[in-house]
Design a protein around this nucleic acid. Sequence first.
DNA 1: ATCCAGGGACGCG
DNA 2: CGCGTCCATGGA
Length: 269
Amino acid sequence: MITVELDNFSLKEICQSGQCFRMYETEENTYELIAGDQYLKMTQDGGIVNFHCSDMEFICYWVPYFDIDADYSSYIAKINPRDTYLSAAAECGSGIRILQQDLWEMIITFLISQQNNISRIRGCVERLCEAYGEKKISGEKEYYAFPNPERLAAASEDDLRGLGMGYRARYIVETTRSILNGEISLDRIYQYRYYSRAKQELLKLSGVGEKVADCICLFALHHMDAFPIDTHIRQVLDEHYKRGFPNRRYRGMRGIMQQYIFYYELNKK
DNA sequence: ATCCAGGGACGCG
DNA sequence: CGCGTCCATGGA
């Protein structure tokens, strides 16, 4: 087990931030997470966080995953103090992190997310993993990994509709096919240095539009300028930023600001 | 019942 | 390009 003391890090807030749909608070201050084919149990008491894994797994996998080496207080310090809305939002969600999740998993997950609510997205993703993911064991915990493209290719559109994916089933089938036949290369998308290039490539996938592409760029590729505009963010922009969001000021950190706003809208009061 | 949820494809003018 | 319309599903 690894024990570390961290600033601006809250498992509860990360869990409720809506980036990862397979993280659960299983008991008070105890969280379980399945990411890709990895399972992790964590506990937190104040700033002290316990990761139930080896040193190697922590350093190679979970440090980048949780963006642990980044200093989020410096992001918060950049917020215009006269922007009372954004200041309140960042204070509310000061412990969230921009996760670095698996690209393939984020593509499928955010295809499912469209015109859908978070609790139902969780259910859809979980059923998808149970039906097509590899069964794994970590200690005494059994879980299903997120299915890789080859395994998901076994699912027909009707199969996926049977799992409650609705009209998104066709997007999943078509996107899986274009990845498997090499039309779109995940490796290439990983290697693009510029956000606009990665986004441009993602937009070629069936069912991936502006918003979903931005979520994938932010939550998998860590392109911190991605600024996904969903229905909640749209309302905030219309109400608090009628002259546009201050993009210049927050260049290189637009994504985290978006997440502070998103978290605030879902969890305030 | 009606509305809404981390939207996007498609057709139309 | 900007705009309607349709697309499943379940909870409030």
